[in-house]
């Protein structure tokens, strides 16, 4: 069980349901970003979906006309904090795939500002991921990824790309921004897939 520090008692609750190994609970909402918060107006926002040589695009209004869902999600950041029971609203990634037939098994999500993250389609389809545009009943603050971000709550939060601008289908898994800088390709918090 590691080196015991006899003077260290710990102050947090033990065995919190919903808390993956090595995580602690936080009540506030930390911000971690690699660079400046991009400035994106909703009337200039576009989401692109590139698949097998073709592409489709949605502007803000088009995106809002897609099916919407309310989501209650626990967030787990690789830096060890978890925030439970957060409320979001957005479009299930499944809705973007309406009418798309593909042999691809992976997706690379792109963000305004140049961020990318890779995900197997199995981890974003079947009600597992959303493009969200509301947090806690209001617009998503820019530092938390507004106007719209990816939400993949069953994986570490770096997979939930802020300021998301599109997705690209991939035949092979290709590491994104953090995945090519020492972080795990997949990022399951319950298996502690932190570092690659």
């Amino acid at each position: 069980m590691g080196i015991v520090s006899s003077g260290f008692m710990g102050r947090r609750k033990r065995d919190v349901p919903g808390l993956p190994p090595g995580q602690y609970l936080t009540e506030d909402f930390p911000v971690l970003s690699a660079g400046p918060t991009p400035r994106i107006e909703r009337d200039q926002w576009v989401f692109s979906f590139a698949a097998d040589g073709s592409s489709r695009h949605w502007d803000w209004n088009g995106f809002m006309s897609l099916p919407q869902e309310d989501i209650l999600a626990d967030l787990h950041c690789v830096t060890s904090w978890s925030k439970l029971g957060t409320r979001w609203r957005g479009v299930p990634v499944d809705a973007l795939f309406e009418g798309v037939e593909t042999d691809a098994e992976y997706a690379l999500f792109h963000s305004y500002g140049g961020y990318t993250t890779n995900l197997p389609l199995d981890d974003v389809l079947g009600g597992k991921a959303w493009i969200v545009h509301e947090y806690d009943g209001g617009e998503i603050p820019p530092e938390h990824g507004g106007p719209a971000r990816l939400l993949v709550p069953h994986l570490y939060l770096w997979k939930s790309a802020k300021w998301v601008s599109g997705l690209e289908l991939m035949a092979e898994d290709e590491p994104g921004f953090w995945e090519s800088r020492g972080y795990h390709l997949h990022g399951d918090p319950w298996r502690e897939e932190r570092y690659g």
Binding site: M1, G2, I3, V4, S5, S6, F8, M9, G10, R12, R14, G22, Y24
Partner: peptide, 9 residues
């Protein structure tokens, strides 16, 4: 850190 009761942070 590991506390005497096994709790880790």
């Amino acid at each position: 850190l590991t506390a005497p009761d096994g709790y880790q942070a």
